[in-house]
Each structure stands twice: as structure tokens, then as C-alpha cells.
Design a protein around this nucleic acid. Structure first.
Lengths: 229, 229
DNA sequence: GCAAAAGTGTTAGGTGTACACCCATGA
DNA sequence: TCATGGGTGTACACCTAACACTTTTGC
């Protein structure tokens, strides 16, 4: 052991995290100012190098925890990015993951400490290296994924209203949806549990809270589509 | 340069190629017997280590050429696999790509030289490391992808018949399709060009050849779905 | 003439989509 | 009482899916 592949070259391998949150009907992307050369000061995704004792997803969770203070976050791999010269410092092969977080649990103090900011997703400026491309690929993937699996709930608090849920899907797909059709579909799936109480923060009348019932969803034996646009 | 990330560890990074072919109404997967320890002799996907002067996709194309003699192959990334211990030799992070090849162009001599064989996809035995898992993920991805983009044609000769095309989709989705509905849909898309000649190898009557017209497809401004199951 | 695969239309049911008004409430 | 957002049902168009017989031709 130790000599099997010894004629081969090794590479730096990092993860890049596309951390998405949802607030006030908009999707946000957590960005930091890069703290070291090259391109110090330019905006960048969160990232970290993989350590020998870590699985890739461990690195992601560690990085997420470091920047957001949140644990056990929903995440999914977007893909590996390894073009020569993508990192203008040295060659780094990076594996991108997007993470969907409930912004209510987010630790703002950590945010300030890292000089991080939540950028509205549709107003993201130039990022270092190929990070803009990675973000594009992420949205593409999120759209496809959210259409077949109920992953959007990871962006919401445990209790949410149907108007909130609708505005989330509208933000993900970048278009407005018909209220009646949306509600009908969501409720017909039978995985939402209506609560007794209402959210009165957005209107005088108030909107009923709902909870996503994962058990019921799991019983549905994974239909091909969750929500079609 | 050269010192930016020097406190970080480096890793072996390889690519694994899931090479798929189609013949006699079945999908086949190209496998080799592993030539070196550990697990020498066990069946494995094609793979190769990334070299410092190669983009990831260059490594894939090089590996494909080496094992199949084919150039400019259609391929797509499946994802990165980097669990500790996945390679029982040393830690290797591998990036998997599937490739769709036209078996008619395949070089059988190379196949024999590498002790490779085409295994029917639904009859693949145990493979080294996590390669079975990678193959599963590939099929999943292929199914989703083939439903929205006309990638299946990469598995066929330039000229093919509708019965052939149908049996290809049946192989990809593992279920039989209605002949009339299939033909109607395919022809209604308007991207198939009927040829004058027929393939008489599969029946006395013969089936007309068709060609896929990429230009026409490109004009279609990329509809959301290509072929829905 | 017969076996074997190629080719061809119609219909019923279901699904997506468009659309407008009343309700509840706090100020 | 009024302004604001929450909540509700229907009709039509379109698409999907089911279904059976005729044609061609080599042997």
C-alpha cells in the first residue's frame, strides 16, 4: 500500500458550496469576499479543500457549518469542475454541491465574521474563476430536481403558508404561477398538513400554516413527478 | 505561484467511463478485467488517472480512444465519487462520465487486447469498488436525460429504422412501448429524415431507414421535453 | 400461401391551464 | 368602510394511452 498508483500525479481537490436561502419571496445566494490571493477581495462561493480523513460530503458539511452555523443541511452534488486554469492560482479540481438552508436558522454573526453576504440570486455580480457557471448549472439542476422531488421545503421553516410555498416555486422557476392551480396540485398530493394557526404577518386575514409530512410522501412510493411546471 | 495552497493535501483523481453500446435491441456495457492490484482480475469500468496537462474531459476522451478506438464520443458527466476506501488501494477521487457509442465503429481488436467484453446491461455482475453504484446512477441519469434531449441517436448508426429506434428507447427505459404512439411522436417532432432505402436485415418487408437531422432539432429552440415516457 | 415484421388512425379519458369573484381582518 | 392579501370551482383544449388490422415479401 502506498505504491499502487505512485507513478500518477496528485491534485488539490476542493468543494464549492452554492448555499441557497429563501426570504421575502426571493432566493438568495451566500457569497464571501475571497480572503487570499489570487483574486483576493472578489466575490466567491464558499469553498474548502478536501482533507485526507474526509469524505467529500464531510468537507461540504464542515464548510457549511463553518459559514452558516447550520448542521445536517440538505445538499446535492452538482458536478466536478476541473478545467486547467479555472483556478488562476494552481490547478484545483472542485466538486460543487448546492445546499438549501432555512434562513431562519442562519447565524448572522458568522456571516459578518466571514464578510459574507446574501446576494439576491438574480442579481449576482461577477464571481471568481468559473463560479458564475457553477451557479448557472446549479439553478438548472435545482429546477429539474424540484420538479420531481419535494426538496423546496428545505428552504422554508417547518411551518409555512401556501402563499409562501407558491412564491418559493415562483422564485425557483422564475415565473408566476396560477394560484388556484398551484394550491390544487399541492393539496391534492396529500403531503401537506394544515395547521390550526395562521401566519398573520403578511396580511390582515392571515394564511393557514402547513407542514410538510415526509412520512406520507415516503408512502407515495416515489412517483416520477412531484410538481410539474 | 506554486505556494498558494501549499498547506493542503493532494489526491489522485481519475475518471471512470461508463461506455454504453446498443445492439440487437439490448444495451451493453464495456467492461475490462482489472490488470493490476488490488482486485486484479475482477471486472471494472474503464478508467484512467487525470494528467496535469489534461482537462477532465480530455482524460475521458483519451481513455475512450484507448479502449474503443473511437474519437469525439458523446459523453456526459455523472458525478464525482470520493468516499474514503472506495478504492481499496489508495484514496482515489474519481469523476464518472458515461459515453454513448455507435458499436458499429467499435474496434474489436482493441477490445481483445484489453481483455474487454461487452456485458448486457441487465446482466452485469459484481464490479470493483463502487462501480456497480456508478452504473446505477448512470442509468438513472441516462433515462432522465434521454427524455429531454435527443441523445439516443449517439447509440445508433447514422441510418437507422424506426423499429430499431423504438427498441433502443425500450432498452433505456426497460419497458415496452406502443408502436403507433411511438412512431407518431417521433415523426411529429419533425427531426427525422426518411431515406429512400430500407433495412431488409430484420424482416422480409424491410423497414425504411431514417436519419436524425440535428439542424432541424437545433431550430426547435430546445423544448423542455424531447420524448416523454 | 404463409410466416414475420412493418406500417397505419381513432377515440375516450385524463391532465394542464386559463380565468374572476368573495372572504376575513385590522386599521 | 376599505384596502389587502387569502381562499375557492369550472370549462375547455390538449395530450396521453389504449387498441387491431392490413401490407409487404422471401421462402
Amino acid at each position: 500500500m502506498g505504491a499502487f498508483y505512485s507513478s500518477e500525479k496528485k491534485f488539490y481537490v476542493s468543494v464549492d458550496c452554492i448555499i441557497l436561502g429563501f426570504k421575502n419571496s426571493r432566493l438568495y445566494l451566500l457569497l464571501i469576499k475571497r480572503r487570499f490571493q489570487p483574486l483576493k477581495g472578489m466575490e466567491s462561493l464558499m469553498g474548502g479543500f478536501i482533507r485526507p480523513d474526509e469524505n467529500i460530503e464531510d468537507t461540504v458539511q464542515r464548510t457549511l457549518y463553518e459559514y452558516t452555523g447550520i448542521d445536517g443541511v440538505y445538499m446535492e452534488q452538482v458536478g466536478a469542475y476541473g478545467q486547467i486554469g479555472r483556478d488562476t492560482g494552481e490547478r484545483v479540481i472542485s466538486i460543487a454541491y448546492y445546499a438549501l438552508i432555512n434562513m431562519a436558522l442562519f447565524d448572522d454573526a458568522l456571516c459578518r465574521r466571514h464578510h459574507a453576504r446574501w446576494a439576491p440570486l438574480n442579481d449576482v455580480g461577477p464571481l471568481v474563476f468559473d463560479h458564475n457557471r457553477i451557479v448557472e448549472d446549479t439553478i438548472d439542476r435545482l429546477q429539474r430536481r424540484a420538479a420531481i422531488r419535494p426538496i423546496g421545503f428545505n428552504l422554508l421553516p417547518e411551518k409555512f403558508t401556501l402563499p409562501q410555498l407558491q412564491s418559493l416555486y415562483e422564485a425557483i422557476y422564475g415565473k408566476t404561477l396560477d394560484k388556484r392551480n398551484f394550491r390544487k396540485r399541492m393539496l391534492d398530493m396529500g403531503v401537506l398538513e394544515k395547521q390550526e394557526d395562521k401566519d398573520k404577518s403578511a396580511s390582515r386575514r392571515g394564511a393557514y400554516f402547513y407542514k410538510f409530512n415526509r412520512e406520507k410522501y415516503d408512502e407515495l412510493l416515489r412517483p416520477g413527478t412531484f410538481f410539474v411546471m
